[in-house]
């Protein structure tokens, strides 16, 4: 079979599969996680420590395990997910600025183009009979990547971040942002083996040009609609090559990921993360229905 015929067949089979036809994956599906099938390797992002958990940076110490949720609401019952009962739920604590992160940890076998697609939705905890549209500060996703050990000197750990800044200090902003710099590294423990940095700290986010977008939030805190996200990244050049959300395709020509020198234990790392952040003393929830990570190899 020729490559063209093979691609047509692959495309036809994907389009005929109801679970996959809502995605546009690159030729090789690396992972397809529909949370109706369980946690699928998603866990909490735990911070680094040595000897004593007190050494964990506060940003990480607040993180807790994700949940499998039917989006159950006090007034309307379980909302359900995109095409089943369960979604992955990432919940913050009820404290302004609190964050939580769920992560899946892989390595890559080919340094080429990858694409992450997901269907997500976000809401604050429905603790008030109000629209509460400015209670969630942000949600977003990130890669944590490092070159292979054959890359030689100058190899990098690269952490592309993209967040939807929904609100800040009560102002309803609704804008996509990226993060080109992390916070300073702090040594953990006394053995000179471990360091830590909180890459989701509030400072250092930069507006994506033309990144204003009004998403479907719906009319009360217990109604949700699922939103499509797609981020393209090239592991060969370690550059972002595309970003879209629903019907909008964004200019990523100014996008920069966090870049730091390669670390001694992270070769070929391919981590995926989703996060939520609250702007009030109310829990913020990010729900992920499904994730498709694909690559061109």
């Amino acid at each position: 079979m020729t490559d063209i015929a093979g691609n047509d067949l692959r495309r036809a089979m994907q389009m005929a599969n109801p679970s996959l036809s809502r995605f546009d994956p690159l030729p090789r599906i690396i992972t397809f996680d529909d949370f109706d099938r369980g946690f699928s390797g998603w866990t909490q992002l735990v911070g680094n420590y040595e000897e004593d958990l007190d050494s964990m940076l506060p940003g990480y110490a607040q993180h807790l395990s994700p949940m499998l949720s039917t989006l159950p609401h006090w007034d309307a019952g379980s909302h359900g997910s995109f095409d089943g009962s369960y979604a992955l739920k990432i919940a913050t604590r009820p404290k302004r600025g609190a964050q939580n992160v769920a992560i899946k940890r892989l390595t890559f076998r080919h340094a080429g183009p990858i694409r992450i697609e997901a269907y997500v939705t976000f809401k604050p905890e429905a603790s008030e009979l109000k629209l509460s549209e400015a209670d969630v500060r942000s949600f977003g996703f990130l890669y944590d990547l490092q070159v292979g050990d054959g890359a030689g000197d100058g190899g990098q750990r690269v952490m592309p971040h993209m967040r939807f800044l929904n609100a800040l200090d009560g102002e309803h902003i609704q804008r996509w942002q990226f993060k080109p710099q992390t916070t300073s590294f702090k040594p953990i423990g006394h053995d000179d083996k471990t360091v830590s940095h909180y890459h989701l700290a509030p400072e250092g986010w930069v507006d994506l040009p033309g990144g204003e977008q009004r998403l479907c939030y719906n009319e009360i805190p217990t109604k949700v609609n699922w939103t499509y996200l797609c981020l393209d990244f090239d592991l060969a050049t370690m550059q972002c090559t595309g970003f879209r959300c629903n019907d909008r395709v964004f200019d990523v020509s100014t996008y920069e990921p966090i870049r730091i020198p390669a670390m001694k234990n992270l070769w070929c790392m391919l981590n995926l993360g989703f996060f939520a952040e609250t702007d009030t003393d109310k829990r913020a929830f990010l729900y992920v229905d499904s994730v498709c990570l694909s690559g061109d190899f």
Partner: peptide
């Protein structure tokens, strides 16, 4: 059968009225 170990409080000092964060596990 699905099985999961969830961490709902880690290195938190409880005094007085204390509780973990809510955990949803209807499954």
């Amino acid at each position: 059968r699905e099985s999961f170990a969830a961490i709902v409080a880690r290195n938190e000092t409880w005094t007085g009225k204390s509780a973990t964060e809510p955990y949803e596990a209807g499954w």
